[in-house]
Simulated assay, not measured.
Amino acid sequence: MATTTPRDPYRKASANAARAGSRSAGDVRVRRRVAHPRAPSPQSHTGPHALAAKPSATDGSAHDATRQAPALHRVLTLTDAVVAIAMTLLVLPLVDVAGQVGTGTIGAYVANHGNLFLSFAISFVVIYVFWAAHSVAFRRLEDTHTEAPALHLLNLGWLLLIAFLPFPTAVVGRELTTTSAPVYIGTMTVLSALTAGIITVTDRVIGPPRRTAWAWLTTAIFGLCALLSLVSADLGMLALLSVAVVRVVERRLLPRDPARRGDRPPAS
């Protein structure tokens, strides 16, 4: 007859406690995994939402271009307004003496006020040429979505000289002397230097210099004309024709800018 060995009650209680402890520890680990899920790695994103999670540098540059374009547009709008007002003010000295015109004395009137007509024509053409160069430079920046902070101060001085030019124009139109002519041509010399500075900055920011040398050559010719006017006012005014010659040669030799043809650079 087999005999049964009595079980130790203390050993049985210890085993039950160990099993209960392991189950509770497992439950704690499960709860921790549920409460703190592992963050997915950036490489695990796939599908159409993967590109949206990480913005590219191209998106940033496009955003900057969108923000900068209105600023350049406002500069061009202000420039057009200042130029239009300055070109209109040039005719005021002729309006002041318009009451002296008689029915049969138009020829004598033009001969007596020839300096007024000459200064009006020269200043009108000069403002238009400088405005065209300014517009081409800023259109290039606008088309390429580029900003050049150095242009802000140059443009301020440029607008100041454009607005000031009608005053020396009226002075030299009333009396052409070795005092009024240097002031008149000197104003255009500084205006030409500011225009050359704008072209230089634009060429350095955007691409190869195409018109920088020609712009500074034009400024040098204006300076020589100002120096000649110190000796002879008539000779200084006549020497301004050389600026027109340089302008014609420049247009013949240099290719036309895409901004002036209305073209746009290809989208990248």
Results as ranks from 00 to 15, higher is better:
Gly157Trp: 02
Gly223Gln: 03
Ile85Gln: 01
Gln100Glu: 14
Val136Asp: 13
Cys225Met: 04
Thr4Val: 13
Gly99Gln: 13
Val246Leu: 12
Leu217Met: 06
Leu194Arg: 09
Val246Lys: 06
Gly157Gln: 00
Gly173Ser: 09
Val172Ile: 13
Arg67Val: 05
Val101Asp: 02
His134Thr: 08
Gln100Lys: 07
Leu90Phe: 08
Gln43Trp: 07
Thr179Tyr: 01
Met87Lys: 05
Phe120Pro: 05
Asn115Ala: 12
Asp257Trp: 07
His45Arg: 12
Arg29Leu: 14
Arg251Trp: 05
Pro209Tyr: 06
Asn112Thr: 10
Arg11Thr: 11
Gly26Lys: 14
Val231Phe: 14
Arg251Tyr: 03
Val34Trp: 03
Ser268Arg: 14
Glu250Gln: 15
Ser135Gly: 11
Ser180Ala: 14
His45Trp: 02
Ala233Pro: 07
Thr177Asn: 00
Leu151Gln: 06
Val245Arg: 03
Ala81Trp: 01
Gly104Ala: 13
Arg23His: 10
Ala121Ser: 14
Arg204Lys: 11
Leu191Pro: 00
Val28Gly: 08
Leu156Tyr: 13
Ser242Phe: 13
Val30Gln: 09
Ala244Ile: 06
Cys225Asn: 09
Pro40Trp: 03
His45Tyr: 05
Val231Asp: 03
His113Ala: 05
Phe117Arg: 05
Ala35Val: 02
Leu153Pro: 00
Leu89Lys: 10
Ser180Arg: 02
Trp216Cys: 10
Ser14Pro: 01
Tyr10Asp: 08
Leu165Thr: 12
Pro255Ser: 09
Val205Cys: 03
Ala137Ile: 04
Asp64Leu: 15
Pro168Gln: 07
Val125Asp: 08
Val172Met: 08
Val231Trp: 13
His152Phe: 04
Thr146Gly: 03
Leu176Ala: 10
Val136Asn: 12
Leu116His: 14
Ala226Ser: 09
Lys54Arg: 11
Leu217Gln: 03
Asn112Met: 02
Asp80Lys: 01
Val171Ala: 15
Ala193Trp: 11
Val205Ser: 07
Thr4Ser: 10
Ser180Gln: 04
Ala150Glu: 04
Arg33Asp: 06
Trp214Arg: 14
Ile127Trp: 01
Pro209Asn: 08
Ala148Arg: 11
Glu142Ile: 04
